[in-house]
């Protein structure tokens, strides 16, 4: 749609600054007669009040209302967010986003905007948490690497001095560098998990078997003899 220029806009092309001067007068609450006098003084042309009124309604007032709307929406969002919570440049960016949305013709629903803003704040907070966790893990990895280096250096020193590396040394390395428990010898099945860790004093015969008598009673004579052999 082609927008037809008003007389003030046409004159503004020939006399730069005329539109600005008219707007300033209207901002100050001047009457159309006052505006007419100014235009006459600047251009020498007597513009009828009806033409001036058309400019006032179609251009000046529309711009004023848009600005008013923009400022009110911005203030509402700012109050909701807490003005002190965001920096000046972030506030300016927020104002720009509202302005762009209004220019794009969006039926701006402050509640929708506030919801979006809150979601944005939540995402930012989550991102910060992830970053902190990442830093913590990196630090942990670095500490482990350092401990592993120290433990292996120590083992290397011991080995190069002619000493034998013992299982206890390996356990110490595992524990210091990787935080792992000492390495256990495999537990014989006959001892069962209840005797873990292995007790060297313990013999298979010592392992308690609560159902032994019952089992023996149920066993046939032949089987009993075979087993005793």
């Amino acid at each position: 749609m082609r927008i037809q220029a008003t007389r003030i806009e046409q004159l503004d092309r020939k006399f730069p600054g005329l539109r600005q001067a008219v707007d300033l007068l209207l901002d100050g609450g001047a009457t159309l007669d006052g505006v007419q006098a100014l235009v006459k003084e600047r251009t020498g042309e007597t513009v009828p009040n009806q033409t001036l009124s058309a400019y006032k309604q179609k251009r000046w007032l529309i711009a004023r209302l848009r600005l008013k709307d923009l400022k009110e929406t911005f203030q509402a969002v700012k109050e909701e967010l807490g003005a002190n919570a965001i920096s000046e440049s972030t506030q300016a960016r927020l104002l720009e986003l509202i302005d762009q949305a209004m220019r794009a013709g969006a039926a701006l629903d402050p509640h929708f905007l506030l919801k979006e803003q809150r979601l944005w704040a939540v995402h930012t907070a989550n991102l910060e948490k992830i970053e902190t966790e990442k830093k913590r893990l990196e630090l942990q990895i670095e500490q482990s690497r350092q401990a592993l280096k120290e433990a292996t250096d120590e083992a290397k020193e011991k080995a190069s001095s002619g000493e034998q590396l013992t299982a206890a040394d390996i356990d110490r390395i595992r524990e210091r560098a990787l935080g792992l428990p000492p390495k256990q010898e495999a537990v014989p099945m006959s001892l069962g998990h209840r005797n873990f860790p292995r007790n060297p004093e313990l013999k298979t015969a010592d392992v308690p078997m609560p159902n032994a008598d019952k089992l023996l009673a149920e066993m046939s004579e032949e089987e009993r003899q075979r087993r005793s052999r």
Binding site: G17, Q20, K71, F74, E88, S89, Q91, A92, L95, E96
Partner: peptide, 23 residues
């Protein structure tokens, strides 16, 4: 000069808040 005047006029509308250059 007129451009600067218009910039100033727009900034006054939002005083004491700041605006972005894009606006």
């Amino acid at each position: 000069d007129i451009e600067r005047g218009e910039i100033l006029r727009f900034l006054v509308e939002f005083y004491p808040d700041a605006v972005t250059p894009k606006m």
